[in-house]
C-alpha cells in the first residue's frame, strides 16, 4: 500500500483548517493506512505546528529551512521531491498555494494528478475512485485515478468534514537535512494587503449580494436601491469585480472578504465554491437565479427561479410599501 501524506498549510504556528480536512480525506482513501503529515517552514512556528499534529498523525515530517520561511511553491516542490518516497499519495488543499504547488509536483514525482476533489470513494488495488465537479459546480463527475506510480490530490476546502485528532502519539521526524539547498526562479518580495473599501460588508447583518446575473454596471443601482430600502449593504461575487462594476472590497469569497451576516440574498450568483467559502456563520441564504440548476440552490435555505432584473425592483417596491404603511 502506498504511503499517504498530508501537506500541512500553516500560519503563525497554527495549522490551517484544511489540516483536519485532509485527515478526513486520507481516512476515506484507506481507513487503516498509516498517515504522515509533511510540514515545511522555519523556526519556532514550524515546531509548534509539528507538535500540534502529533495527536493526528503517526509521523510528522518536519522540513525546516530559512529559505522556506515563506511558502514559495517552487522551493517547497523541490524539497518535497527529495523527501517523498516513490508511489506516495500526497494530499494538498486546493487553495492558492495548492494550485501553485500541486500540478508541478505531480510531474516531478511522476505521479497522477487529480485536483479539487470533493469526494473520495475508496481505493481498489491501484485505482482511486474520486468525485469532482465541472462546469462551475453544475455537474459532478466520478473519476478513476491510477495511483500505481503515486498521486498528488488537491482537496477542496470545506468538502470534507474535519476529523478530530484520533489521539495517537505520533513522532516528529526531522527531514530538513535531506533537501539540500533548493533555489527558485521565482522570489517572494512582499504581500500587499487589500485596501479597505467605502463600505465594510463584514459588518452588515443583511447583504444583498449580486453576481454575473446583474449583467451590466447600470444595474448595480437596482441592488443598491433594495439595500437602501432594507438597511443592508451590497456585496458581490467575483465576476462583478472582474468587470469593474464594484470594488474588490465588496467581493465575498476565498479571494475576497469573509462575511457573517444574518441574511444573505444571493441575486444572480451561481454559487462557485470559492464564493461560498466566504460565507460563514450559517446565515439564512435566499437565492434568486434564473438558472434552476445553479449550484447556489444546493446551499441556499430558500430558492426562487426568476430574473433578478425584474424581481429586485419589485421586491424593493414592496419593502418601501411596507415602510410607508408602518410609518402611518
Amino acid at each position: 500500500m502506498a504511503r499517504i501524506f498530508s501537506y500541512i498549510v500553516h500560519k503563525d504556528g497554527v495549522p490551517d483548517d484544511s489540516a483536519a480536512e485532509l485527515l478526513a480525506a486520507a481516512r476515506q482513501i484507506d481507513p487503516n493506512a498509516p498517515l504522515t503529515a509533511v510540514v515545511c517552514g522555519f523556526g519556532s512556528g514550524l515546531d509548534r505546528v509539528c507538535e500540534s499534529l502529533r495527536p493526528s498523525y503517526l509521523e510528522v515530517w518536519k522540513i525546516g529551512a530559512e529559505t522556506l520561511a515563506y511558502a514559495n511553491a517552487e522551493l517547497i516542490r523541490k524539497a518535497l521531491v527529495k523527501v517523498l518516497p516513490p508511489q506516495s499519495v500526497v494530499l494538498v488543499p486546493h487553495d492558492h498555494f495548492g494550485i501553485d504547488l500541486a500540478p508541478g509536483l505531480s510531474i516531478k514525482l511522476g505521479a497522477a494528478f487529480v485536483s479539487d476533489v470533493v469526494g473520495i470513494e475508496g481505493l481498489q488495488s491501484s485505482t482511486l475512485n474520486i468525485v469532482r465537479q465541472e462546469f462551475g459546480g453544475q455537474v459532478s463527475a466520478h473519476m478513476k485515478c491510477d495511483v500505481s506510480s503515486g498521486a498528488v490530490v488537491t482537496v477542496r476546502p470545506g468538502a470534507f468534514k474535519s476529523l478530530d485528532a484520533p489521539g495517537i502519539n505520533g513522532q516528529v521526524v526531522d527531514k530538513s537535512l535531506e533537501i539540500g539547498v533548493p533555489s527558485a526562479g521565482r522570489r517572494y518580495l512582499q504581500t500587499v494587503v487589500a485596501e479597505a473599501g467605502d463600505v465594510d460588508i463584514t459588518k452588515h447583518a443583511v447583504l444583498i449580494s449580486i453576481g454575473r446575473g446583474i449583467q451590466d454596471k447600470e444595474n448595480v443601482a437596482i441592488a443598491q436601491e433594495l439595500a437602501d430600502a432594507m438597511g443592508a449593504a451590497v456585496s458581490c461575487s467575483r465576476p462583478v469585480v472582474d468587470a469593474k462594476w464594484l470594488e474588490k472590497s465588496r467581493q465575498v469569497g476565498s479571494s475576497g472578504k469573509t462575511v457573517k451576516p444574518k441574511v444573505y440574498l444571493a441575486c444572480g450568483i451561481s454559487g462557485a465554491f470559492q464564493h461560498l467559502a466566504g460565507i460563514k456563520g450559517n446565515p439564512f441564504i435566499i437565492a434568486i437565479n434564473k438558472n434552476p440548476k445553479a449550484p447556489i440552490f444546493h446551499v441556499a435555505d430558500v430558492g426562487i427561479v426568476d430574473d433578478i432584473l425584474e424581481f429586485i425592483p419589485e421586491l424593493t417596491n414592496k419593502v418601501r410599501e411596507m415602510h410607508s404603511v408602518s410609518a402611518k
Binding site: V139, K144, A151
Partner: peptide, 12 residues
Amino acid sequence: KVKRVDYFMPTL
C-alpha cells in the same frame, strides 16, 4: 492516468 467514468447531477 486520470479518467472520467461518468457525470451525475450533484446532490450537495
